[in-house]
Design a protein around this nucleic acid. Sequence first.
DNA 1: GAGCAATTTGCAAACGATTACAAATAAGCT
DNA 2: AGCTTATTTGTAATCGTTTGCAAATTGCTC
Lengths: 339, 339
Amino acid sequence: MTTKTATIQDVARRARVSTATVSRALSAPDSVSERKRVAVMEAIESTGYRVNRAARNLRTQRSNTILTLLPTLGNPFFSKVLKGIENILTPAGQSLIVAETQQIQAAGDGLLSYLNDRRADGVIVLDGAIPKQFLDDLEGTPHAAKVVFACEWHERAETPSVRSANKAGARMAMTHLHDFGHQRIAHVTGPAGNVLTDARREAYLAFCEAHELQPILIEGSFSVEAGVAAAATVLNLPTRPSAVFCASDEIAFGLISALTKAGLTVPTDISVLGFDDIEMSEHFLPPLSSVRQDRISLGAEAAQLLLNQIGRGTQSKERDRHVVVPVSLIARDSSGPAP
Amino acid sequence: MTTKTATIQDVARRARVSTATVSRALSAPDSVSERKRVAVMEAIESTGYRVNRAARNLRTQRSNTILTLLPTLGNPFFSKVLKGIENILTPAGQSLIVAETQQIQAAGDGLLSYLNDRRADGVIVLDGAIPKQFLDDLEGTPHAAKVVFACEWHERAETPSVRSANKAGARMAMTHLHDFGHQRIAHVTGPAGNVLTDARREAYLAFCEAHELQPILIEGSFSVEAGVAAAATVLNLPTRPSAVFCASDEIAFGLISALTKAGLTVPTDISVLGFDDIEMSEHFLPPLSSVRQDRISLGAEAAQLLLNQIGRGTQSKERDRHVVVPVSLIARDSSGPAP
DNA sequence: GAGCAATTTGCAAACGATTACAAATAAGCT
DNA sequence: AGCTTATTTGTAATCGTTTGCAAATTGCTC
């Protein structure tokens, strides 16, 4: 028994109308008379008809699919962002394709290819380090307007983006520590060249300048290992800082872990602050104070922005090309008064 | 300036051959003479032609796209699994669509719809609690063979699956603790009704039986909160266990966190063992002993299995319908000799 | 009932590939 | 050369929709 699926022809035949009418009954019900409409609906019901996406995609030149590009799917930070994206996309009738930049590049593919082929109608890029070739390819084509950045972004590109209030977050972190009376506050940065690293460091330096604190910069990366390494640096400093503001929670974990092993107690001996407020932070020992990024909103806003951008949004009014999602300081037990 | 993309017609015209030849030059180069083949390649080069996927999909009745269904994208456990999946799929020329079961259901969609529409050629289900309707829909259709489970599975379905060696893992955990001399070992389970919960609990009970230990079962769920709750239960037990085997790392985190607050020291007073070995476990304080699941392999194996299943695998020989991925015990500092 | 505008319909041409099938060409053999 | 077989090509149908255009129908007004 072949489960031959019904086509629009079958429906048309059964409802004694043309295929055009069936198509219209579905996409523009108002342009079809009441009588025919119910006839069509009935026929659809009884044949179990479902519109074939491939055919529709070919004819309409769109796929109702969005591509999201990540540096790595393995990083749990992005899982929540993806959730935010999906939560907007699926209800809007769009599918979500995910891929790692690396893999796409290795496969000899690019954004242009996805957009040209109508494999995707738009792209959300979560990778600030995307090969610039990917973007250059789009230059001058109508596809250029179908890309938005989220979380990270490209400094020189005027591509729309959604991002956290990184500088405000850094200021909140510093204010929190400063209010506790800390005068020597170090900052463990993210990896060099990263836009987030730059934004947070800049805000840190500005705060130090404004409050006449001596900046203590420790180069790092967004990893636990960087935190462990930073601990060694901190312990070797001639005058030890009384607080450390880390550019990520992972760094903070590694730092606390290493400092604790070295015999220090957090926050009694030294305060530590993270950035991101990932899942684990709340349950770390001690629970980590951190600047929370709303990852779900980040993803949702990006999806929304993109849909608007490609003319498929729910909101008619044009939104800002750059959306900044607020952050908040979550004070827990890893930060306290200066000794 | 319209960036009108070249079609196969344009290429054919330029190479002075028929579209059939162009198509064949691409999909079956051997069936085309050397001369025409280079002519076609040249024409492709100069026109910048790229095959239109929508058209191909319609004609060939396939999308080269795989759907992965998750309980929630927000759970970082799955991010690594997704990475494993993507690492196989992209090089194989397949795209990866991800969606949450909930969203799909809310959108009034189902697996059948995706497979019928050719939005996806196959499905990887990471959600053991998938509505059974989704599977029932496929019953008797050729689509039934296009689904595989990964990580979790459906007890009653004979759908192929990839899973970790859950029972072996539980035995390894128990052996580890038993070898340390522990005689009273509690087990905090996962959520009721979950297949992983059942497998691990069963192995725990079997071990107790075999070694004449008195089982101490504490109902839980795969969450930090469950661990916190379990700590209260443990502390109220008439005779406190000297070790606790948790069905997930999250549980272990919550448990350790709460036990520590209550004044106990891990592992001196009580040993704790997790399951999964997620990222954070290594950097928790104390570093958590755990049963490691190879999440990347889990995903990769599932993708491989599915590709084989739908006749697009690289390996010709039929593989087992159920793949078991080995686990390993990672002994760190949260487990030690019985007091 | 005629005349005219507004609304509903259907016809048929796309969309851009793949692939039976038949025709043309090349190769092999006596 | 002549015949048979294998290899390359091209022709044209097909996948299942959507949509421009023209035809048919309906509704109004006088």
